[in-house]
């Protein structure tokens, strides 16, 4: 099978691709005009970075770093719900 060095370099390549796509998302977020587009761009950025945290935790052999993935995914969903409620023109407590 693949040696350990090869596995780690494949993982590092995946981390590099995630960073590249996050930079594209951030560029698009900085030049975007309408509000729903910006909201789904923040979503994509957050989900990307959740995977990035887990990959970084495997890459540095540190279990302590993987904690942040679940809150990132959950609070991006909450951000979605708040913005859609605002766009529908309803109060936040409805």
């Amino acid at each position: 099978m693949l040696s350990l060095e090869t596995q780690m370099y494949i993982l590092a390549g995946a981390v590099g691709l995630y960073i590249l796509s996050s930079l594209i998302y951030a560029y698009k977020l900085a030049t975007e005009k309408s509000v729903p587009d910006m909201v789904i761009l923040v979503d994509s950025l957050t989900y990307d970075l959740a995977v990035f945290i887990v990959a970084l935790s495997i890459l540095t052999q540190n279990a302590y770093l993987a904690v942040g993935a679940l809150p990132l995914a959950i609070w991006a969903y909450v951000f979605d719900i708040y913005m859609s409620k605002y766009l529908e023109g309803r109060e936040l407590g409805d």
Binding site: D80, K85, Y86
Partner: peptide, 19 residues
């Protein structure tokens, strides 16, 4: 992620069409 992401994208699409 599998549970929440479709619900969130549906909510934001509905809100955008209403806005």
């Amino acid at each position: 992620v599998l549970i929440t992401a479709p619900a969130g994208s549906h909510a934001i699409a509905r809100g955008a069409h209403r806005a």
